[in-house]
Design a protein around this nucleic acid. Structure first.
Lengths: 342, 342
DNA sequence: CTGTTAGCGCGTTCAT
DNA sequence: ATGAACGCGCTAACAG
């Protein structure tokens, strides 16, 4: 390791000490300049000039080690590349940015174990707070969430005893089902749903939909509730199988757990009937989430707008209170919804 | 600040020193256990047991400060919530994960100045390497990229003198234009394009498209090349204006800079003609990027598949070489493409 | 207002 | 094979 006696630069980065030497003050002086204030106008000017000249920036590393604060929030998401997640993080970032926090993301690509890895990474990185945009919440998740030394807020699932912001999935699905059933009384319906491991989508949203359809006299037999992954391809595949099944009476309605799945269903319907879903004899397809792209291309199909952006905002707000006062009582917030095209 | 004399835990986290006390060895021993190895079988077992019992994890903070290494790569993206970005980061993560690196994301929401903020954050956090998924590359960007002390790779734009991986936007657009023009000779065409600040999309892709169409005898007057933002809503708006313009002879073809924009165009066409783009009298809409959702819902429209995932893979590979040997010569890689539905 | 002192939690000599 | 001592870059507490 070599450096010049002028202390200008070593390797690449400059330290507060070197800068102090250069200016002719103590390192603490520089530190105060950077933080509290307590510096004479004269020194203030000299330091400012030296910083300008050298391009010095303090090491967050060392600062964080010393202060135990990072002004960083880690957000763990199951997937980037969906509108839903994009809206949530936009809401989170809006609030965080205003308060001087920066957000870093960990993407798990729908791998529940990777979620815990990221949470632990963030906890030890460390960040000041964490947000988990949740899908499957395992016992291991719950344990971690409750025992975490770093404040954490869950978005998208209700977890008892943990700070969380979630949607009224059951209520929304019920309302969507009810309205669709009202317009198509006695329709022959199927559902393309997802794993029950995702409680909000796999259970609550499903039960709400079944109940909503039932109020309009539509019963969906178990055999017509099929499981798909959270992808367009999977929605296509399951719908295709359903439509090709010779034992199946003609379908009037295919309700899907998400808009991504609905997109796949629409593709299958279009291929099978030669006309878009909801026109002519082709069954109507419903979704969930109000995906802008899908709405535009399709010209509009029944779905639900959930206010994902708001969930991000509320989640970030809750996290900030928690970071400022870690003893804040856990709270859960349920957001409303808006049915679209039904 | 209080802690028990057994040294088990203070406040929240445990340190290497406390663990050492508990086991009855020196802190250095624990450190060696965690890193080099130089530990007797006997102590190894005792330490392993104590770690298991306490759930101890070393502070990355302190380790990083000491070693100057983080095993972390920062990726700056212009947008989360698009399939394109999702594919790139999936490719990046695949390679990085295999090599023991973790990836953290910074999302700028299409704000070019935020890009530099994030790069600087990462540089000083620090991370071992950075990837910029670029859109607009300003002189400030170029300066930063060239002078960065942390290895950095650019994906999506060609930047001379900087390590980068990009697509053959011009070639792809040319080929798409050529094929479409071949099937619709003499078509009356318009283009919905984007800012020239994004060189790859705004200039190269546009020029390729114009040239490709021209080979089939289709000339697009300047007045029919309209600017949109990178959104579905903006694509809708511009197309709507175009279709409503009474001075405009009926259009046969609307070529768009991206699939998101194309989705908006399709919505406008559907509203205006009462039938989906490309059917009956409704003009054909082309896109760029092979968005899965849009393809499914529309039943297929001409577009280009760019291999975004591959760009992520190649970019990450380049970054790893760079991190292992910072003196590696800068290289730029151009990837191929595949025209879809044309 | 300013400088000195003492760590934050680790990894790394250099002795033993 | 092991432990003592030191330092990474910074900030908090104290003295002046």
């Amino acid at each position: 390791m070599t450096w010049t006696s002028s202390g200008a630069r070593r390797g690449a980065t400059m330290t507060i000490k070197e800068l102090a030497e250069r200016v002719g003050v103590s390192p603490a002086m520089i530190s105060r300049y950077l933080n509290n204030g307590y510096v004479s106008e004269e020194n203030r000017a000299k330091i400012a000039a030296a910083i300008e000249e050298t391009g010095f920036t303090p090491s967050r590393q060392a600062r964080n080690l010393r202060t135990g604060k990072t002004s960083l929030v880690g957000v763990v998401v199951p997937k980037i590349s969906t509108e839903t997640i994009g809206r949530v993080t936009a809401g989170v970032e809006e609030v965080l940015g205003r308060q001087g926090y920066q957000m870093i993301l960990g993407n798990t690509d729908n791998d529940a174990s990777a979620e815990l890895d990221y949470l632990r990474l963030f906890e030890r990185y460390p960040v000041d707070g964490m947000i988990l945009v949740a899908t499957e919440v395992t016992p291991a998740h719950e344990r971690f969430l409750r025992e975490s030394k770093t404040p954490v807020v869950v978005i998208g699932q209700r977890v008892p005893g943990v700070n969380c912001v979630y949607h009224d999935d059951e209520g929304a699905a019920f309302e969507l089902g009810r309205r669709v059933a009202e317009k198509r009384p006695g329709a022959s319906a199927a559902m393309i749903w997802v794993t029950e491991k995702d409680r909000a989508v796999g259970i609550e949203r499903r039960d709400g939909m079944l109940a909503g359809l039932a109020t309009g006299g539509i019963e969906v037999p178990d055999a017509r509730v099929r499981k798909a992954a959270f992808t367009t391809a999977s929605g296509y595949e399951q719908t295709h199988l359903l439509l090709e099944d010779p034992a199946t009476p003609a379908l009037d309605l295919v309700c899907c757990a998400t808009d991504l799945i609905a997109a796949g269903a629409m593709k299958a319907v279009l291929e099978r009937y030669g006309e878009p879903a909801g026109t002519g004899n082709a069954p109507l397809v419903t979704g969930f989430g109000d995906n802008e792209l899908a709405q535009a291309v399709s010209g509009g199909f029944p779905t639900v707008h959930l206010g994902n952006r708001t969930s991000g905002v509320r989640g970030a707000e809750a996290l900030i209170s928690l970071m400022e006062n870690p003893r804040t009582m856990p709270a859960s917030t349920m957001l409303g919804f808006r049915v679209v095209n039904a």
